[in-house]
Design a protein around this nucleic acid. Structure first.
Lengths: 276, 276
DNA sequence: ATGCTCCTTTCATTGGTTGGAATAGTATTG
DNA sequence: CAATACTATTCCAACCAATGAAAGGAGCAT
């Protein structure tokens, strides 16, 4: 990698191609190499994917291992360590909401016996914070710690609808991604959908890939009335009808919101407009 | 570290007290400042607790925020970020076992309606990987991401009993910690207990603090037959008797083990000795 | 006004960081 | 069994990113 063919001045002793990146960035880029498909990596793999010389990678990794951010397996490969997981569990938007929401997710799961999801928004995607699934539940595309698009999932639509206006515009302007299995909405329809989501507190989407499912999602508010998370249920298309699921999902989401300190201003009927 | 006490030449311009620590270590020490009680911190707090000048802390933090390891709140404080949580979710001993174990934990939870815990060992402590609790469950000392001692908890005893011999000796030699609420065992009794745990696949402990509870734990094995996790249930003392709980806990732990690729060599009766 | 704390920017100094080269270890191939 | 190819590790001189005192600015209390 990074071999410059033409060296203008004959170097007295080797040249430094890509020096000049902060050490932390490099260390973090090593962590970023890990993914769902790459959970255990060798030194050379890490060096290759993070695009740095092996000695450099080794030195950085040694420090990460010493701290516990990475762990070394018997076969010499590296995996993400428990210490890092431990610190990460202090993430308010990660384990934070999860901790509060979990009992209500469990209730919903027990009653329905279908996938129950909790997600937060990170930039332009939804990050799955929790997923409860039976051993025999239908196939579902996303795993905890994974990311989902905002526009083509129920859980994402809720987060998008609750985002600040400026961010929404950015996303709305973007050309459709054409994800398979979900009919992509034109901008106008998407706008109307988002408005509906805000009004009713419910987003609903049908997908055919990886299996025919219906998702129903509802927003979770914090004490300031901002949408901090999205709670969703995914059932096989044709089983429980969405209009039956909606109240249960909405109720669970409201219960979580209340535990976060959210005070709904009116208790009767459907709110015509959410604050903010 | 590495502070030379005698500086021969009087420094021309200010001294650098603690210069010389690798950047990564400093960055990681910033992360380590966060704890259960300190989830949102200001720059000066971070700098103070991590023992470094504010400008240095700010520079490092800026990089961590850029990557997503930390997030900045509206009030200027910093919290652990979702991006870090996301990478950490790839930790095999963190979310890895959790993901496989969760359905079985749920079953156990539903049947008993009491705390169900999952933990792995990190060095000399147990790290809580998962905890299922009803909204109305009894008070329990440990939270997910938190740590528990090995010798005075059921979940810890299982992990200790399954650790390599050398490590066990290290711990056994250590003087008792005298945790309140649990009778501390002398070395001999502890040895016998660990042996029993290995033989029966069950550890049991009564505590009186923070409330009167009984914990029953059982080991989770991986494909190599090593104890990788510990599964436990905590019930109020006097409710369901431990000997009723034990089979359920053992069964759940075995189910998880099987999903990890563990093959019990004999299916009849109680194994007299675990492999290793 | 004065003092205080916290956040941020600047900049000359320097020691931690760097990566090519060399060595050792391991697996695969002919 | 040598040859090849790969990975992991150690070494070290060059050098630039990292450093932190100093100073400026913002906010708040007295």
């Amino acid at each position: 990698m990074t071999v410059t063919p033409e060296t203008g001045t004959p170097p007295t002793r080797g040249k430094r191609p890509k020096q000049g990146e902060p050490v932390i960035d490099r260390a973090l880029s090593l962590l970023a190499v890990f993914s769902d498909r790459r959970r255990a990596l060798t030194l050379s793999e890490l060096a290759r994917y993070a695009d740095m010389p092996a000695p450099t990678a080794l030195r950085l990794i040694a420090r990460l291992v010493a701290w516990g951010a990475l762990e070394r397996l018997d076969d010499g490969r590296y995996v993400v360590g428990v210490r890092l997981w431990e610190v990460a569990s202090l993430s308010p938007r990660g384990h934070g909401v999860r901790e509060i929401a979990l009992p209500y997710l469990e209730d919903l799961f027990e009653v329905t016996r279908h996938h129950v999801l909790l997600a937060v928004r990170d930039n332009e995607q939804a990050v799955l914070i929790e997923r409860l699934s039976g051993k025999d539940a239908t196939e579902v595309a996303y795993r905890v710690g994974g990311r989902a698009p905002l526009r083509s999932t129920a859980i994402g639509l809720v987060l998008l609808a609750g985002a600040d206006q400026q961010f929404q515009e950015t996303i709305l302007k973007r050309p459709p991604e054409n994800e398979p299995g979900v009919p992509e909405m034109p901008e106008g329809q998407l706008r109307r959908t988002l408005s509906d989501v805000r009004r009713t507190g419910i987003a609903m989407i049908r997908r055919t890939v990886p299996s025919r499912t219906v998702s129903v999602a509802s927003p979770v508010f914090d004490a300031q009335g901002a949408v901090v998370a999205s709670l969703s249920i995914v059932v096989p298309d044709g089983s429980t009808p969405p209009n039956v699921l909606a109240p249960a999902v909405r109720a669970a989401a409201r219960a979580v919101s209340r535990n976060l300190g959210y005070q709904a201003e009116a208790s009767a009927g459907v709110r015509t407009h959410s604050p903010g």
